[in-house]
Nucleic acid binder design. Sequence first.
DNA 1: AATCTTGTTGAGCAGATGATCTATAATTAT
DNA 2: ATAATTATAGATCATCTGCTCAACAAGATT
Lengths: 214, 214
Amino acid sequence: MDGQTETSRAETEDGGTRRRLPPEERRQQILDEAVRFFAEVGLDGNTRDLARRLGVTQSLLFKYFATKDDLIEAVYERVYLGRLSPDWPDRLTDRSVPLRARLLAFYNEYSALIFQREWMRIFMFSGLAGAALNHRYLKHLGDVILRPLLAETEALATPGAQPTMEDIWNLHGGIVYIGIRQHIYRMPPPDDPDEAIARAIDRYLAFCGIGPED
Amino acid sequence: MDGQTETSRAETEDGGTRRRLPPEERRQQILDEAVRFFAEVGLDGNTRDLARRLGVTQSLLFKYFATKDDLIEAVYERVYLGRLSPDWPDRLTDRSVPLRARLLAFYNEYSALIFQREWMRIFMFSGLAGAALNHRYLKHLGDVILRPLLAETEALATPGAQPTMEDIWNLHGGIVYIGIRQHIYRMPPPDDPDEAIARAIDRYLAFCGIGPED
DNA sequence: AATCTTGTTGAGCAGATGATCTATAATTAT
DNA sequence: ATAATTATAGATCATCTGCTCAACAAGATT
């Protein structure tokens, strides 16, 4: 395009001679950039633009990922992986700790993990696309986090103020919506997200008649 | 493709002779289907598929919308339009009615308007794409609904339990998340969304020390 | 230094996609 | 009935996009 009269040196556009990386390293590099790229422009972003960002030929991508779908699948897995730490179910049901403290700990950690542009947007893009991994994740979240949370609350709630699964989803959704506002709609973040989360939790617990030390 | 040996009759694929609609009618027909189409497959859906759904040639679309972007812009406007009724600001601030009743009325009506697949998905797609209309809508929502709502709550709240704008967003987000679960993630809807909404509102009000009759 | 291995490039294909243009035929006006 | 108008179809263009393949060259091996 820019008619760059190059010698036969193996230079890339930005002048650096940096070809031939070890395969695993290159694969990771591609995957990292792909996550950023697709999170930004959507899963329909084209491979040529991605390659340009990497300073690499488009054809090279297909040496590491047979098809674009394979690449996107890898992006999904990389993004989804480890987002739901396996020890949370135990920690959330550890009744030696007050429920409020458990909830605060969980949502502070969880929000730190998911309130990131890459995660938020890829999650939303994949959700809109009906990706299987998205459904699996949400089912998993419901099974190992939210349902146990309901049980924990039920155990402590005032009899007349028993929560429902919908109440849990409402607590969860209200918190997640902070990230949606920030990363999907690109609105300015709250001054103090953790405080907003704490207040949401306190509203929820208060309504079930559960005190901070219960 | 299917080697249909047709006479020179003006028949469309499904056998009906139904060409030549009045321009305004055709335009509406295209726009209606475009809303459904793009809501389903995303804004990158191609015009040939859309035309096929309409039982019409792809080139015809460009007689009514100069470019695909124009069509999408029209889709945006059609979907966004009238979603925020102009009388809500007044009704939400009508202090002759208890705040709880005002909130219930608003969110029951509002959720009926927005918990629709077309709206939810187009809103999300346009949000991810950074559409200007999306930002305008959210700003408008904040200005004419949520901020007044904060003021109304502040006027009634117990001094020590004053809500913040974040609390309002949390209330709002928790409710909107019901629609997100249903239409973006395609999870089953709550048995009774209005009840879930009512409980969210009650949690919010209770935490501000506002009774049902205030 | 010569040879081999293989990561990388550059050219290019096939199909998809937005958009254009002309011929056709449905409808209206005469 | 005939002519004028114009909504629509069909063919086609230019570009984009996922993907392939042969040739090249960086780094390892001898």
